[in-house]
Simulated scan of single mutants.
Amino acid sequence: MSVLEAVARQRVVVLALVLGLWSPAWAAEPWRAVARVATSEDRSLLERVRGQSSDLPVILEAEAGPSMDASPGGAWREAERLASRKDARAVLWFTRDAAQLRVSVAAPRTGHLFVRSARVEGAPETLTWSVGAEALALAVRSALRAVDAGEPLGDVVAPPPPPPVVAAPPDLPAAADPGVEAPVTPVDGAFFQVGVHAALDGYHSWGQQGLSVGAGWAGRVLRLRAQVLAALPVHLRDAYADIRLTQGSALAWADVPFVKTGTWEGTVGLGAGVAGFWRRTEARAPDVEPTPSRLLAAFVVGPAVRVAWRVGPALALEAALSGEVLLGRPRLGYAAEGGFVLREDGASVRPRLGVGMVIFP
């Protein structure tokens, strides 16, 4: 080889290197494409695509997972989710249908979908399989090159997503209209109450239990209510008599709030009223003469603490704990030999727990 031929060959090599360094494939910033691989054949096809696209500024990443066509939202929706999660400009996947093998390349940012099919038979890496695989790899290279140039191939299957909108800071809430009721804030007005209650009355070991109903008015700083309590009758038995005792009371309450937190409210108040006792006696021994049935009354006064949870504009759940002081409660016993033998005295102070609903019509 002459000296002139050697110099000419060196110049050709240097020119090729310069052109290669200044070509778009070297100058462009690399971007990401993701391939969903579900089978070993998909992995072999992906290697063919990598070989055909090695001159493109694309990072081709494999994502193992189920077939894209088996996604609940469809292959395109799955491609959109995959591109968003991986920050990819293109998503590709392979679909086998008998001897036909289809490759799909999606560009979610522009809404384009490129699809090509080829007849690919035989096992991977055999001669018949390689011919069809190379044809698909060349088709994918063309699609990736178009995405890199900003002109994706294929059909538009979805409009490109809109650019992100920066939300403006929320305006300060306007002053509440006095005529509009807040959905969970207690307001002035009438209400009804229904619930259950239990108290330790000293007459029976289980005390008394029953229903309570009431009505009232709720103001900003004062709660007024009238309440009626009815208890189930109890039997007080011994060897001499069976006493059936039924109790009830009617009370009036005045409460004031002492704490308000969101939908919770606590009140403390004082109540007064009348408690009624209906007694009926049956003798169990021949020498016992029962007293005729009669209704007795006692004066009741005491404090109460209530906690209410406002569930909605028309309903609240309430729990109340009160202590009732009875003045003039009945004492149950026997008259024997001109004297009185005490049997049940009852409690002068009765703790009572009540729970129920408060309805605002």
Rank of each mutant, 00 (worst) to 15 (best):
R284W: 11
P152R: 00
R352P: 03
F191M: 07
G248S: 05
L127N: 09
P163R: 04
P72G: 02
G356M: 03
W22T: 13
E289R: 13
E47G: 01
A198Y: 02
T39F: 03
L332N: 05
L315E: 06
V288N: 05
V166E: 14
G210F: 06
A167D: 14
V221K: 07
A6S: 07
L232E: 07
V213M: 08
T128N: 12
G276D: 04
L327R: 15
S40T: 12
T185L: 12
G216L: 04
R119N: 13
L46C: 05
L296R: 11
A88K: 02
G132V: 11
R310T: 13
F340M: 03
Q208Y: 02
I243W: 09
A83F: 01
L222K: 02
R352C: 08
G207W: 02
A35V: 15
P330T: 09
L224F: 12
G323A: 15
L327V: 15
S53M: 02
L332R: 03
L17Q: 13
D55N: 12
T185R: 08
P66F: 09
L92F: 14
A176Q: 11
L321E: 02
S205G: 06
G219N: 04
R96S: 10
R36I: 13
E337I: 04
P24H: 02
E282H: 09
V14H: 07
S53T: 15
S142W: 03
D69R: 14
G328I: 11
A16M: 06
P160E: 06
G269A: 09
A64I: 06
I359W: 15
V355E: 01
A27M: 10
R145F: 10
P66D: 12
S104D: 12
G74R: 01
G74H: 05
L113Q: 13
G207L: 06
L138A: 09
G262L: 03
S212I: 08
V307F: 12
R350S: 13
L19Y: 08
R119M: 15
V12G: 07
S67L: 15
A133P: 00
A314L: 14
Q10I: 12
P161A: 15
A168V: 06
V103L: 10
L82F: 01
L332E: 07
R223T: 14
M357Q: 02
L232W: 13
A75I: 02
S71I: 00
W22L: 14
D55K: 08
Q247E: 14
A83L: 05
L172I: 13
A35L: 10
P169Q: 05
G339N: 14
R36S: 12
